[in-house]
């Protein structure tokens, strides 16, 4: 048992941000969630049972995520008109290809069923061991193993490209299928 050192928390911001992004599916919500999590953790002295604070932060992130979602469900929704909202910043990002890939991946993780998503975020995104993930999510280690297995299967299936359709009877491959083949293999056929 030891007191949580607030200064040591800042080293986990990047990893926690990625975990939050995969939980929420959007960068903006992830920023909000991480800030809210740190504000909660720092609001009073905390005592850790283990050596590593990362699994403690994962549990705090999960609890804050659920609380925020419940609160959002009760909050009146403000509807902005098209006139009020501008398009996103049109300036190109440094590495648009990579940014698209990360966004696509985390958005797909965010669509997984909740239990599977949490297991995958804890182990694969945050980097916790199965034991730490079980501790953080308050489930048995065997449960983490099962959920992670299913989460990976589902994620893989959702991100897998559609199989190319058989060639048309006239022997000419249609343009859409051809693009899909290039996309999935990374080389032209």
């Amino acid at each position: 048992m030891r007191n949580l050192d607030p200064q040591s928390l800042t080293q986990h911001v990047d990893r926690l941000y990625r975990a939050a992004w995969a939980l929420c599916g959007s960068r903006e919500d992830a920023e909000d969630l991480v800030q809210e999590t740190f504000a909660r953790v720092l609001s009073r002295p905390r005592v850790l049972s283990g050596d590593d604070e990362l699994h403690y932060l994962m549990r705090a992130l999960r609890n804050t995520f659920f609380t925020a979602r419940r609160t959002a469900g009760r909050r009146p929704v403000t509807v902005a008109t098209l006139e009020d909202v501008a398009a996103e910043d049109p300036r190109p990002m440094g590495r648009p290809e990579r940014a698209l890939e990360v966004q696509e991946l985390y958005a797909t993780i965010a669509e997984l069923p909740e239990d599977f998503r949490l297991a995958l975020v804890a182990v694969d995104v945050l980097g916790l061991s199965y034991r730490e993930a079980a501790h953080a999510l308050r489930v048995r280690e065997a449960t983490i193993t099962t959920r992670l297995f299913r989460a990976r299967k589902q994620l893989s299936a959702r991100l897998a490209p559609e199989p190319p359709a058989p060639p048309a009877s006239d022997g000419v491959q249609r343009e859409g299928n051809s693009l899909r083949a290039v996309f999935s293999d990374g080389r032209e056929r």
Partner: peptide
Amino acid sequence: VRALEEPAPAALHARIDAL
């Protein structure tokens, strides 16, 4: 998934540091 190293925005780091 494990290899992704997407960093948090600098503004978020600044806000956490301030907290």
